[in-house]
Each structure stands twice: as structure tokens, then as C-alpha cells.
């Protein structure tokens, strides 16, 4: 039992990352407003970044910047081997991923502006209803009718 508590306590970063991920996932699925969906996607992405940075962190580690580098700090060089650095590779991955996240957000918001100009609403149900009215061949009823006609032949 104490083992379970130790895991919950020691890995709390991971529990928070899963919680944030599920909050974002819920927003992407259940919210009807398109901007709310993009906010949910943002929360989902940052939760994954939190997971990667938590992986890189080491107990008693310091930022991955060389200690004692340069002539003016030459007296510290003999201690440089004792310094523990956090892993910098996940940091580089996440630095790239943040830029990609902003780009996908920008594309999503540009599409949202285009959809609003076309349908006059950001609500998913209103947009889908307008689409069915404009293009009846895409509606569920017409699709099922088409399936029935094909099966009759």
C-alpha cells in the first residue's frame, strides 16, 4: 500500500499531465464552439510538453548550461565533473514542438474565420445544419437513401 502512495506522490507531475490532457481532450470532443475546441487542443499540446520536460528533469540536477566554462571562472573547472545536468534533448524537441503548436493554432484560427464568414456562426450544430441545407447530398438521410438504392439494385 505504501508503494502505491509513493508512486502517486513521487510521480505527481505525470498525474497532472494526464489530468490536463484529459481536460483538453474533453474540450475537443464535447464543446460545440470551434474556438473552445482550439483552446482544448492547446491545453492537450501543453500537457504533452509537460510530460516531456518532466521526463528530462533529474533530482538535484541543474540547467543544462556548462558550469565553470571560460577563463574568469577557471578555479571552478575542477568541480565541473561533479555537476548533474538535466537532460537537454527533450528540451530541444519541445522547443520545436512549441513553434509547431503555434503554427497549427494559427491555421485553425484562419479556418475558423473563413467558416464564420461562410456560415455566420461558430457553433458546430448550426454549421452542420447549414451544410445539410446547402448540400443535401451530404446529409445523413440522403446518404442512407443512397445506400438503400444501391442495395436494391
Amino acid at each position: 500500500m505504501s508503494g502505491v502512495i509513493d508512486i502517486v506522490y513521487a510521480e505527481y507531475n505525470y498525474w497532472i499531465y494526464v489530468t490536463l490532457m484529459m481536460i483538453g481532450f474533453y474540450a475537443m470532443i464535447a464543446k460545440k464552439n470551434l474556438i473552445k475546441k482550439v483552446i482544448g487542443a492547446n491545453i492537450f499540446q501543453t500537457a504533452i510538453f509537460l510530460f516531456y520536460v518532466s521526463l528530462a528533469d533529474i533530482t538535484d540536477g541543474t540547467a543544462p548550461i556548462i558550469v565553470g566554462h571560460g577563463a574568469e571562472h577557471a578555479e571552478h573547472v575542477e568541480h565541473a565533473a561533479d555537476v548533474i545536468y538535466t537532460n537537454p534533448v527533450p528540451h530541444c524537441l519541445i522547443l520545436t514542438a512549441i513553434v509547431v503548436a503555434v503554427s497549427t493554432t494559427a491555421v485553425a484560427l484562419a479556418l475558423i474565420i473563413r467558416i464564420y464568414n461562410e456560415y455566420g456562426s461558430l457553433d458546430e450544430d448550426v454549421i452542420l445544419a447549414a451544410r445539410r441545407e446547402l448540400q443535401p447530398e451530404f446529409s445523413e438521410h440522403a446518404r442512407q437513401k443512397g445506400v438503400a438504392e444501391v442495395s436494391e439494385q
Binding site: 527533450p90 528540451h91 522547443l95 512549441i98
Partner: peptide
Amino acid sequence: MHSVDVGFTEAAVGAGITTVLFIAT
């Protein structure tokens, strides 16, 4: 968590540019 480069990129890009994009939308 000692990942300073990611920290200030997030402060500039995540909190800055993303908010501007959302408000422009």
C-alpha cells in the same frame, strides 16, 4: 524544472503570440 530555454519560448510564444492570434480571431 531547469528547462529555461523552453520556459522563455513558452512565455513569448505561448502566452504572447497565441493570445494575439486568438483575440484577432
